[in-house]
Design a protein around this nucleic acid. Sequence first.
DNA 1: GCTACTGTACCGTCTGGACGGTTGATCGGC
DNA 2: GCCGATCAACCGTCCAGACGGTACAGTAGC
Lengths: 179, 179
Amino acid sequence: MSQTRERILDALQAQVAQAGPAGATLDAVAARAGVSKGGLLYHFGTKEALFAGLLERLRAHAAADIAGWESGGDDLVSGYLRSSSDAGGDYTAALLTALRLVGTPGVDVEGAVVDSFGLWSDALARHLDDPVLARLVTLVGDGLYLHALVGAAPDDLDHAVVDGLAGRARAAAPAPESD
Amino acid sequence: MSQTRERILDALQAQVAQAGPAGATLDAVAARAGVSKGGLLYHFGTKEALFAGLLERLRAHAAADIAGWESGGDDLVSGYLRSSSDAGGDYTAALLTALRLVGTPGVDVEGAVVDSFGLWSDALARHLDDPVLARLVTLVGDGLYLHALVGAAPDDLDHAVVDGLAGRARAAAPAPESD
DNA sequence: GCTACTGTACCGTCTGGACGGTTGATCGGC
DNA sequence: GCCGATCAACCGTCCAGACGGTACAGTAGC
């Protein structure tokens, strides 16, 4: 929506990434966003509302990413797994920030994360005939997210696992031209 | 070591689980441990030292669990996967607490988590001839941990994935009597 | 004249940590 | 076998600083 709101949320995300939840004070976030504290509170009346805005954006990013892959029409599985092991994208960045907020009182981080996990999980199940394989892909992707959360970069073995799963997924995908 | 120290760490763990890192104040932890704030600070000179004590215990639990499985001599893979999806054990509880502390300044949570992940990963690789399969098992287990972190209980599909992997692992395990 | 802010001053509460005291067990000397 | 000293294991209090939030006067641009 508002450009300033987005800038504030970006600043919150950067601040949490750098200094953790405890370091994400209103003053620090406002300063990083180039906004006064009064200005921040004009957009987000309370700190809880600020965090809630971030979680709303997380859901939006998940839905947008999935819609993008589905309309693109190609390999959702390797797309998901690749994005899981790459902290660059908007969704991954928002998710890693959200995961750092787990346990913050007054904010339903868990709900938002479970929601966006659910969106991906449903999309993968829609694209694979084998539900157990779909869950396997989900779990591997989430394992990669966990590794990213603790700062571990993916190595060759991770890529080998991803490639192997992508191959199995292609074999288990429904015919692409079916309607 | 000291009984009181352990009680304090238990209290910290419970407090983080209930109220998040922000709720883990010295007063709250001391009260929960049945110790005065002065007493807590006697054992852990600073708040950072308190968290460091928890991470030390995490590594110890990981090493102890692995040693237990290995001396027990039976299925490490299904043991690992089962413990990943069950928040009851000492190691899992300590890990979930540690994950909630990611980003806390002055405490190397990431390092401790990476260390204990590494211990498990090495153990699994030792027990499986196929390194890619070993990594696959690791990632699935860590995916289950991530789900547990956000409070999602494992369902039938999760169990199906675990069972499938355990079967593949038995086929890829080195002969048990080789020395 | 309204929206979207800025800037400053301020308040009440909470927090980490320092500090001085207190208890009870252990120990060396006589 | 008693006595003073020592020491670990705490308790209770105090304080400076930080934080979330409020209030309010001012202002640039449409």
